Simulated scan of single mutants.
Amino acid sequence: MTPLATPDVDETTDLSAAPLEPWEVVVWNDPVNLMSYVVRVFRTYFGYSVEHATQLMRSVHHDGHAIVATGPRETMEVHAQAMHDYGLWATVRRSAE
């Protein structure tokens, strides 16, 4: 019986993970929800302060949209679905950073 030959391989494998790309949840303005309701949703779901939730709501109202959360894609998709469940129009997009 002949011994199995070991191939002469000089190979380096990089096992480091690629950095997570940040994603954003964008809430868009709509003609249906009251501003006070949007503030309540941001406070209830995200736990934002009254001031921060109000600032985000004003961006939604005046600029047409606001970035309400940033993080890994899967988490942002969960947040966007939660915004839909509250009746808000939200999308997920790759962060411009």
Rank of each mutant, 00 (worst) to 15 (best):
Met1Asn: 06
Met1Asp: 04
Thr2Phe: 10
Pro3Gly: 02
Ala5Ile: 14
Ala5Met: 13
Thr6Leu: 12
Thr6Ile: 14
Pro7Arg: 07
Asp8Ser: 14
Asp10His: 14
Asp10Gln: 11
Asp10Leu: 13
Asp10Arg: 15
Glu11Trp: 05
Thr12Leu: 15
Thr13Arg: 12
Thr13Tyr: 15
Asp14Gly: 11
Asp14Arg: 01
Asp14His: 11
Asp14Ile: 10
Ala18Trp: 05
Ala18Gln: 07
Ala18Gly: 03
Ala18Val: 08
Pro19Lys: 12
Glu21Leu: 13
Trp23His: 15
Trp23Ser: 02
Trp23Ile: 07
Val25Asp: 12
Val25Arg: 10
Val26Ala: 07
Val26Gln: 00
Val26Gly: 09
Val26Arg: 10
Trp28Asn: 10
Trp28Met: 03
Asn29Phe: 00
Asn29Leu: 05
Asp30Phe: 07
Asp30Ala: 00
Asp30Trp: 04
Val32Phe: 03
Asn33Ala: 09
Leu34Val: 09
Met35Ile: 08
Ser36Met: 03
Ser36Phe: 08
Ser36Thr: 05
Val38Pro: 04
Val39Leu: 07
Val39Thr: 14
Val39Phe: 05
Val39Asp: 00
Val39Glu: 04
Val41Asp: 07
Phe42Met: 03
Arg43Gln: 12
Thr44Ile: 00
Tyr45Gly: 06
Phe46His: 01
Phe46Ala: 03
Gly47Thr: 00
Gly47Ala: 09
Tyr48Leu: 15
Ser49Met: 00
Val50Pro: 00
Glu51Ser: 14
Glu51Ala: 14
Glu51Leu: 07
Ala53Gln: 04
Thr54Gly: 13
Thr54Trp: 09
Met57Arg: 01
Met57Trp: 11
Arg58Ser: 12
Val60Trp: 09
His61Phe: 02
His62Phe: 09
Asp63Ser: 12
His65Leu: 10
His65Met: 13
Ile67Ser: 06
Ile67His: 11
Ile67Asp: 06
Val68Tyr: 07
Val68Lys: 01
Val68Thr: 10
Ala69Asp: 15
Thr70Ser: 15
Gly71Ile: 02
Gly71Gln: 04
Pro72Asp: 05
Pro72Cys: 03
Arg73Ser: 03
Arg73Cys: 14
Arg73Gly: 14
Arg73Ala: 05
Glu74Ile: 07
Glu74Cys: 01
Thr75Gln: 15
Thr75Lys: 13
Glu77Val: 08
Glu77Asp: 14
Glu77Phe: 03
Glu77Cys: 04
Glu77Gln: 14
His79Arg: 02
His79Gln: 06
Ala80Met: 02
Gln81His: 10
Gln81Gly: 09
Gln81Asp: 14
Gln81Lys: 13
Ala82Pro: 00
His84Trp: 06
His84Ala: 09
His84Phe: 00
His84Gln: 04
Asp85Gly: 10
Tyr86Leu: 01
Gly87Ile: 01
Gly87Thr: 01
Gly87Ala: 10
Leu88Val: 06
Leu88Glu: 00
Ala90Gly: 02
Ala90Gln: 02
Val92Ile: 06
Arg93Val: 04
Ser95Pro: 03
Ala96Trp: 10
Ala96Val: 15
Ala96Cys: 05
Ala96Leu: 08
Glu97Thr: 12
Glu97Lys: 08
